[in-house]
Write a protein that binds this DNA or RNA. Structure first.
Lengths: 113, 113
DNA sequence: ATAGGTACTACCCGAAAGGATAGTGTAAAT
DNA sequence: ATTTACACTATCCTTTCGGGTAGTACCTAT
């Protein structure tokens, strides 16, 4: 199916494939999180926090939960004290990576200095 | 340049190619506008409004202004009464279309029923 | 005994995005 | 004479997003 086939069918964007994909990737830090996971999988919560730096616990936590709810991130909890939780990408997320690369490349070519 | 090369360099996302591309395409209606323009170029303001339906004048107007400021949309005004304004895509926007198609296709394959 | 590390949650706040409604000036159509 | 159409703008309001701060329960290192 291509964009052309949506002609006249768009009622609510959140129900379109466009809208779905956008809802999944647009969160201020989601791309950064996905790309960091793609490189270092699996990564623990505080490692992510340190690597990103400017993010707060609350925001990182909520972004991860949304990613998990959307099936892009797996959360594995080890029953230890102190706690240990590892995050990694799902297969679904792996299929997104080429598209994220394209978005990145487009930015490189088109971002004004 | 690939995502991998950003390792350790990310300070503020809005300065990265990722962030730039996302800022350009993420507005609730931008994708819809771009795809409608891609199909019917050029399109007049009220035609866009009618085709989208659920959008308000104010929102359509601001989304178009942002798209214009980002160099994705051209605005051509005819000095007539009543006014006539036509919107169309720039070459820069045309280079985005394949990526938007990819985002759409990913949504088709991965959107939960 | 104190400080630091683990993975968070709870609560409050400000900014920004987008929706709702109404109005502008001119001309053509009914 | 009234309505309709064009392309908007202005004002107000609500919702959403993300930031800031503080706290939890337990363990290890100093």
């Amino acid at each position: 199916m291509s964009m052309a086939e949506y002609k006249g069918k768009v009622k609510r964007i959140q129900d379109t494939p466009f809208g779905y994909t956008m809802s999944v990737i647009s969160g201020k830090w989601k791309m950064v999180i996905i790309y960091l996971l793609a490189e270092n999988q699996p990564v623990r919560f505080n490692d992510l926090k340190r690597q990103i730096g400017a993010i707060t616990y609350k925001t990182l936590s909520s972004q991860l939960k949304e990613l998990e709810a959307d099936g892009l991130v797996k959360r594995k909890e080890y029953p230890q004290v102190p706690p240990k939780v590892e995050y990694s990408l799902t297969d679904k997320a792996e299929t997104l990576l080429p598209i994220l690369e394209d978005l990145c490349e487009w930015g490189v070519s088109n971002q004004p200095s």
